[in-house]
């Protein structure tokens, strides 16, 4: 069982989606995330173990390498693609409640801003870390964040912005959230954002990349 999960974790990390995926060359012709997930389920391995002992491990490993600049966004994204493939097979178990996520992360690009590529990467990595992700999209008004918090008790919120002009809209959104839901934790990020700015506007956290968001979330849910 552990061997199968270890192989699956490696496939996720390497972005080996299925048997036909040509990379990495050393795994050419071997089963990928798709086949291995099916095999694991057939063998009766619990979906929760497939998620937390394979998928999360693989994504964590690639996320750490990304943070250390050993790999770059394309490698992170093929890993995310392999992860999506595992998630596809696990979907029914999320619905039935057999898999427990670590918590819910509500994320969106703040109002006035239409950038999503960075936010999407954060979504994938956070999902791969075992959280349920609710992506509100781009140009998200305060009210949509408030509604999402209302509907997802105990969720943690992420805000993204790419321009200094829209970064200021983060302050209003954080204020609105903290006024109505003082317990809700908020992490912010995006190219012009800094830790100082996060402190200044009363956000609980900042990270320049997705892995930092995972670390923040892991701490926030214990």
């Amino acid at each position: 069982m552990t061997e199968l999960l270890e192989r699956l974790a490696l496939c996720v990390e390497m972005g080996k989606i299925d048997k036909a995926t040509p990379y990495p060359p050393e795994l050419a012709g071997q089963d990928g995330a798709d086949e291995l997930t099916k095999q694991a389920l057939d063998k009766g391995i619990s979906p929760d173990d497939i998620l937390h002992k394979a998928c999360v491990i693989g994504m964590h490993s690639i996320g750490e390498k990304f943070q250390r600049n050993e790999v770059f966004v394309p490698q992170l994204l093929i890993a995310a693609k392999a992860m999506t493939c595992v998630m596809y097979h696990l979907k029914p178990f999320f619905v039935s409640g057999q898999i427990k996520t670590k918590g819910t992360f509500v994320i969106g690009t703040v109002s006035g801003d239409l950038h999503d590529i960075g936010k999407n990467i954060v979504c994938m990595v956070v999902e791969g870390a075992g959280f349920k992700v609710i992506d509100l999209g781009i140009d998200v008004p305060e009210s949509a964040f408030l509604d999402a918090i209302h509907g997802n008790e105990g969720c943690i919120v992420g805000l993204s912005a790419l321009l200094t002009t829209t970064m200021v809209n983060m302050e209003q959104t954080v204020n609105a959230i903290k006024k109505q839901y003082p317990q809700t934790k908020v992490i912010i990020g995006g190219a012009p954002v800094t830790g100082d700015f996060a402190q200044q506007i009363g956000a609980d956290g900042y990270s320049h990349g997705p892995q930092g968001a995972v670390e923040f979330l892991n701490k926030a849910v214990v």
Binding site: P74, L77, I78, K81, M124
Partner: peptide, 18 residues
């Protein structure tokens, strides 16, 4: 193109096009 590739879950291609 970036949007289309993202929608079809071809994330890496989408990013490279971006």
């Amino acid at each position: 193109k970036v949007k289309e590739y993202n929608q079809s879950h071809n994330y890496m291609r989408a990013y490279i096009y971006d």
